[in-house]
Each structure stands twice: as C-alpha cells, then as structure tokens.
Amino acid sequence: MITPVLDFGIAIVLAISMVLMISRLFIGPTLYDRVLAVNSFGTKTVLFLAVFSLMVGRGDGLDIALLYALINFIATIAILKFFRYRSLDVALSQMALRRALDGEEDD
C-alpha cells in the first residue's frame, strides 16, 4: 500500500509551498507580489483539499475545493479591479467602454 504514503507526501509538499506563499505575502514588496501570492495560495489550498479528501477517503472535500477555486478567481478579479479603477460599484464592461471613449489618456 503505497498510496496513503504518496498522498501524505503530496499533502506535505503542498503545505510547505503554502508556507512559502505566506512568506512572500509577508515580504511583499509590491502589491502585485501579494495579489499573486494570495491567488497562488488559494490554488494550493484547492489542491490540498483535493488531496486531503482522497487521503481520508471522502468526496466531500472536492465540493469545497471547487467552491474555493471559484471564489479565488472572483476575489482576484475584484482586487485587481479595485486597484485599477479605485472602485467596485461600476461594471467592468462600462469601465472598458469609458476608457475607450477617453482614448486611454490615463495610462
């Protein structure tokens, strides 16, 4: 029976990479390092939950892993939108339209 050992090893490797992501989150130095670190940290969590649910032999963890993947994606977009446009209450499609009409003068 090599599979449980393998699962455990993969989970440990994922946990170590989560620690690395946390250190990048802590050090920074720029905003985009941190956004990328959180996004990548979320991906590690998704993978960890998938491995974990395999390890304990229950499928419930996969649902949460899927939910994480969705939330992680939306949160990253929200953060980047916040920093590009300084606001969350205008639709992205209108933002793009407004920028096209202004002739990209704010770049």
């Binding site: 992501m21 946390i22 989150l25 802590f26 941190r34 956004v35 670190a37 959180v38 949160a75 953060i79």
Partner: peptide
C-alpha cells in the same frame, strides 16, 4: 497587505 493576509 493586511487585507491580503486576512484573505489567506
């Protein structure tokens, strides 16, 4: 950074 950390 604090907001990002609370997310994590």
């Amino acid at each position: 950074a604090v907001v990002m950390l609370t997310g994590a």
